[in-house]
Structures are given as structure tokens and as C-alpha cells.
Design a protein around this nucleic acid. Structure first.
Length: 589
RNA sequence: GCACCUGUAGUCUAAUGGAUAGAAUAUUGGCCUCCGACGCCAAGGAUGCAGGUUCGAUUCCUGUCGGGUGCACCA
């Protein structure tokens, strides 16, 4: 179904054409002066230059034709050349009726289905998730859902950091403590134990210590590098131990991501491309673009038009070892082979912007990826505490994601339990749902690229622009619909009619009519925050309508059915929006 | 040093070059005999500074000041 604004634009463009002007001038937007009109067209002013004519004259000519249309209840021209439009109730109601009868409420699904891979920028194994991992998980999950909602395919790959020195560090530290284990016995040829010789909490302790020590203790670092090499060379015991590390970590990661209702289709990692790196490096050399600079293998990626210095993309370090770039490039190559995607979307901290620019350019320049495949880096900002500095625990340490979520769940549980008639079990379930909306909405309602302040109290509030407020609104709609059913009403028999009783109803209908336009924009810009803004506006429009309109006690049956249909439609759109954001509303709260 | 991003009410946050910069929070006032008042209605309060382009600038350009980040063998 076409956007409502495009429908209006069709009418206005036609009028421009009839008046002898370029129809492209007929662009219509929602008015930013609701006191003057509902929609506006500024094309007359843009046309003034082209036709060397006063904008007001053009506007007046076009307005004459617009008045013939039944789409508008009023058409006014204001100096210097604004065309102010009010949409007719019939035109609006007809559109909303059609929306309510269409799958996904009129959102225009993709004609050509595209396939995207979403790379969540890989948490490292053996390291607990911290608050920084929240953003790639939450934003990535939402983007994945938006893409799917629009009728495309999205494949989410967590892309673990499971290779390289960090693994060597863990192994080296573990070896030092447990030198006699079979994993370090070169003569051992039997099967290794299936049970891991450590728990996830052991790992979480080992890694930070080993990492810190390697910076001071050169001998230990050498040992870690040796372990890394043995692992990469495929020494049996090291590989077996490494698998244990992965398994233990992944189990823990899955549990954490489950709590956030975040799912991945692929649990690949940097290690998966290890075997194809030599071939990829050879490919780079064969293109003739890779050359040795200061001992390292690099590809120049700067362009004439650059205003900033873009260093070459490094393929191999001067000691011949691979690095982050190598695995990412090899991964691009594998993804093209395996999935032939139309786009790859990377979610990482925005500090990696330059790095991805280099990698993307290198991939294109060397023909690793075709020009029509989109490579997008969504760099997100830092999660800050109330002091505006990166989020820390009270004692200044890194805030573990698990604790943060637990803390919010506990607080929400307290909140839900007090002043409500709800048993503990339900309160627990409900508080988890509400807490998740608080966290996700708090994050997603900001533009991804900006830093934001993680204010637990504010996010959890049931008042204002928060997740819980939205849930509350949805729960209220559900409650009314439920009462309607209990009184013998049949919701499915209700449909949108052509009556508009009051201003708040029209406002709500107009908000509803903007749904597909908004979704299209959110998809094109991969911008979940637009859905948040829309959802909040819609909830406000509904609440105003609710206060101004008696619904269940309305005596005119037809009017009542119209109201119920509007409620049902509003509810459906709210639920779809929330689904795209990655949370849901409970039945009651 | 060079470059990139960013600067909006006390705080937090929005705005394809359009009219009187939109919300939230906090503050102040009003609204429960009525479908969930965790709600609604109303008031005051903001584009760092200085220029420029434009009929029109939060948006584009230049300068300046403040904040953040990045500048090949980390990821």
C-alpha cells in the first residue's frame, strides 16, 4: 500500500501538472504548524526560481485545481507561498480502513527481497559481557527485526572474538596453574575429557589477570604468543582446551543474550576463517594491489576526494601474522561465497569508523565484493553514566551486563509488587517484561551514533517518554478491548467508519496513517529511534483520544464499533512497533 | 600536530533548507460519580559565539570556543 503522504502528493502533483508546472513540486509533508493546517506543500516556493514567478501566484493557481479534489476539506495559500491543506475525513478514514484490512497495516513490502548479514561485532569469548555490549545487541536485534518486517532476509552473526592473542593469554595462564593436565602433554594421543576443566567464573577471573600481566611481564607475553601459535597451528591439546573455552563461554553468552531476548542465527567467529586466510592473502597479492610497506602487506585505500588522511589497509603484519583486518576481509569473502548477500551491516563502537572505512574500501578495490553490495558500518556512541562519563560501577570497575540487568529486574519487581494485586510469580514475569522494555527503549530511543546517558531511574519510570509508559498504554487498550468482549461485543465485527467525532480522534487517525511512511524511513536509514518516536507519538495521540472520548459507554452502536476498530488498529500497530524494537507488552501490569 | 564527530530549556532529547524549534523530566496551576489518574489539559523555560550563502538556516559554508574520538603492525 502506498504511503498516505504519497497519496496526498499524488493529488497535489496532479494539480501542479494541470497548472502547467513540474509535478515533482507537489511534495507534501505533515505540517509543522498544526494550528494552521494538517499538511503542507512548499513546492510553489521551490518553483518560483524555475519559473521566475512569484511563489504566491504559483500557489494560488495550484490551489484552484486542488479545491476540485475531494481529498482536502480546505486549501489555503499563505505568503510567501505555502499551500496549507486539511485532509477530508472521508479521504483519511478510507485510507485508515484500508490499512486496517491490510497485512502489516499497509506497510509496503519489498518487491525484490534482499538478503542482509548483520555482524554484531563480536564479543570476545572468555570475557564477560559488559554494558558496552548492550548497544550492539539491542540495536542489532532491532535492525534485524525491521529488515525482516519489511519483507527482507536478515542473517544475524554474533561473530565472536575467539582467535588470536586473547586466547593464548587464557591458555598460558591456565597452563601455568595446571601444567600436568593432558592438554599440555605432547605425547598424549587419547581422547580428551568432554568436561571442561574450568567454569565460566574461572575464565572470567583468568582473562583480566592474564591480560594485565602480559603488559608488564614480557616472558609471560612470549609464552602467551607461543600458545597462540600452537593453537593456530592446530596442536591437538591446545585446540581441545580452546574448544572448552568456547563452549563454556558460549553457553554463558547465550544465557545472557536470552535475557535480552536477542538471538543470533550464526555463532561464527574469527576462528572460522583461519583456514582460508592464506588463500585470501594470495588473492590480495594476485590483484597486484597489495604491496609491502615497512615490512607489512598493505593495500592503499586513499582516494582523490579525501579530505582526511586514510592510512593503507593492512593485510598482514610485518611478522607475517594476520590481524583483525585479515579476518574481517576473509570473512567478507566467505560471506559472499556462502550467502551472496545484498548487504553486510556491522555494528560496533563508532571509534572503529576509520577502520571500517579502510576495510570496506579495500574489499571494493580488490574486487572482494561487488559494487552493488552494500557495506554499512553503524557506529554507535558510548553508554555513559549520570556523570556523563563512560558507565562504571560504583567502585569504578566495568559494569557487567548481567548485573546491570539483574539490578533493573529487581528494582522493577519491587515496583510492580507494591501497590498492585498480583501474586509473586506473575509479578516476576511482568517485571521482567517491563524491565526489558525500559532498557531497550532507553537505548533505542536515542540516535545510535550518539552517546547517551544510561539513567536507570528515568528509563524505569512509568511516566514520560519511556518503555514502561508505552507498555502501560498498550495494556490499557487491551483492557478496554477485553471489557468489550466480556460485555458480548465482537471485536472482529468492528471496522473503521467514516465518522470523525472530535479533534483528538482525527489526530489519532492521522498519526495512524503515517505508519507505513515511518516504517519505510526506519528501514532505509536503519534507524530504530524513529520507531520509538513514532510509537511515543501514537501512544500520546491515543491517550488524548481516550480521555476525550467515552468508548464503552457510547450509546450509538455504530460509533462504538468505530471506536473499537480504532483501538484494535492502534493496538496492532503498537505491538508491531514494539516487536520491531525487540520487546512486548504484558496482558496487565 | 593533523583529521573526524559533536554542541538545542536546569537536566535529558527530537526536527528531508520552511512559518511561532517538538517532546520528556523538574517546577506551577487545573481535571477522578465515567472504559486502568502510572493518565489528561494548561503555563513558563533552549539552537555555544561571530560572520556568510538563501525569499527563508538548528540544518549548508567560513572562522572561533567547549566536549568527544581517531591517526598502519590492538581489536
Amino acid at each position: 500500500m502506498k504511503d498516505f503522504l504519497l497519496e496526498l502528493m499524488g493529488v497535489v502533483s496532479e494539480a501542479f501538472k494541470k497548472a502547467g508546472y513540474d509535478e515533482n513540486l507537489g511534495k507534501v509533508t505533515v505540517s509543522n504548524r498544526p494550528d494552521l493546517c494538517e499538511y503542507q506543500c512548499n513546492g510553489a516556493m521551490a518553483g518560483a526560481k524555475i519559473y521566475k514567478k512569484a511563489p504566491i501566484a504559483i500557489a494560488n493557481e495550484v490551489a484552484e485545481f486542488l479545491k476540485e479534489s475531494d481529498a482536502f476539506s480546505s486549501v489555503d495559500v499563505c505568503p510567501p507561498g505555502f499551500i496549507n491543506l486539511n485532509v477530508s475525513d472521508k479521504f483519511l478514514c478510507d485510507f485508515v480502513l484500508k490499512m486496517s484490512e491490510t497485512e502489516k497495516y499497509g506497510v509496503e513490502l519489498a518487491a525484490a527481497k534482499k538478503r542482509y548479514i548483520i555482524d554484531y561485532g563480536g564479543p570476545n569469548v572468555a570475557k564477560p559481557l559488559h554494558v558496552g555490549h548492550l548497544r550492539s545487541a539491542v540495536i542489532g536485534e532491532s535492525i534485524k527485526r525491521i529488515i525482516r518486517y519489511m519483507g527482507h532476509e536478515a542473517i544475524g552473526d554474533i561473530h565472536l572474538g575467539d582467535w588470536g592473542l586473547q586466547m593464548g593469554l587464557v591458555i598460558a595462564a591456565f597452563k601455568e596453574e595446571n601444567p600436568d593436565l593432558v592438554y599440555f602433554d605432547d605425547a598424549f594421543t587419547g581422547d580428551y575429557p568432554t568436561e571442561a576443566p574450568f567454569t565460566v567464573s574461572d575464565l572470567e577471573e583468568i582473562y583480566p589477570k592474564a591480560s594485565a600481566r602480559s603488559k608488564e611481564d614480557a616472558a609471560f607475553k612470549d609464552e602467551a604468543m607461543a600458545c597462540t601459535k600452537k593453537l593456530q597451528d592446530g596442536v591437538r591439546g591446545y585446540r581441545a582446551l580452546w574448544k572448552h573455552i568456547i563452549n563454556v563461554s558460549v553457553t554463558d553468552l547465550k544465557r545472557n543474550y536470552d535475557n535480552l531476548n536477542v538471538e543470533f542465527d550464526l555463532w561464527k567467529g574469527e576462528s572460522d576463517v583461519h583456514d582460508v586466510i592464506p588463500d585470501m592473502v594470495q588473492y590480495m597479492k594476485d590483484t597486484g594491489l597489495a604491496y609491502i610497506s615497512d615490512g607489512a602487506l598493505v593495500v592503499d585505500v586513499k582516494e582523490e576526494t579525501d579530505t582526511k588522511e586514510i592510512p593503507p589497509c593492512m593485510i598482514l603484519k610485518s611478522d607475517g601474522a594476520s590481524l583483525y583486518n585479515t579476518t574481517d576481509l576473509a570473512t567478507i569473502r566467505e560471506r559472499v561465497r556462502e550467502y551472496n548477500p545484498d548487504g553486510i551491516i556491522y555494528l560496533t563502537d563508532k571509534r572503529q569508523e576509520l577502520y571500517f572505512e579502510q576495510v570496506f574500501r579495500c574489499a571494493r578495490k580488490t574486487g572482494l565484493i561487488k559494487d552493488d553490495v552494500k557495506l554499512v558500518h553503524i557506529g554507535f556512541g558510548t553508554v555513559n553514566g549520570k556523570d556523563g562519563k563512560p558507565f562504571k560501577t560504583r567502585d569504578g570497575g566495568v559494569m557487567r551486563l548481567e548485573y546491570l540487568i539483574k539490578d533493573i529486574n529487581d528494582k522493577m519487581y519491587e515496583k510492580i509488587l507494591t501497590g498492585r494485586e498480583m501474586d509473586e510469580e506473575e509479578a516476576k514475569k511482568v517485571s521482567e517484561i517491563v524491565a526489558l522494555s525500559a532498557i531497550k527503549y532507553g537505548d533505542l530511543s536515542n540516535q545510535a551514533s550518539k552517546d547517551y546517558i544510561f539513567d536507570t531511574e528515568r528509563f524505569m519510570s512509568f511516566e514520560g517518554d519511556t518503555g514502561p509508559y508505552l507498555l502501560y498504554t498498550v495494556v490499557r487498550i487491551k483492557s478496554i478491548l477485553k471489557k468489550y468482549k466480556e460485555n458480548g461485543g465482537n471485536v472482529d465485527e468492528c471496522s473503521i467508519s467514516e465518522s470523525v467525532s472530535n479533534a483528538s480522534q482525527k489526530n489519532l487517525l492521522m498519526k495512524i496513517s503515517g505508519y507505513n511512511e515511518m516504517m519505510r524511513g526506519a528501514y532505509e536509514d536503519l534507524a530504530p529511534h524513529r520507531i520509538c518516536a513514532y510509537l511515543y507519538d501514537l501512544a500520546n495521540a491515543f491517550n488524548s483520544f481516550y480521555h476525550e472520548t467515552k468508548i464503552l459507554s457510547e450509546e450509538d452502536e455504530n460509533l462504538k464499533k468505530n471506536y473499537i476498530a480504532i483501538l484494535k488498529l492502534t493496538l496492532g500497530i503498537c505491538e508491531d512497533c514494539m516487536d520491531c524494537l525487540g520487546f512486548e507488552a504484558p496482558e496487565r501490569m
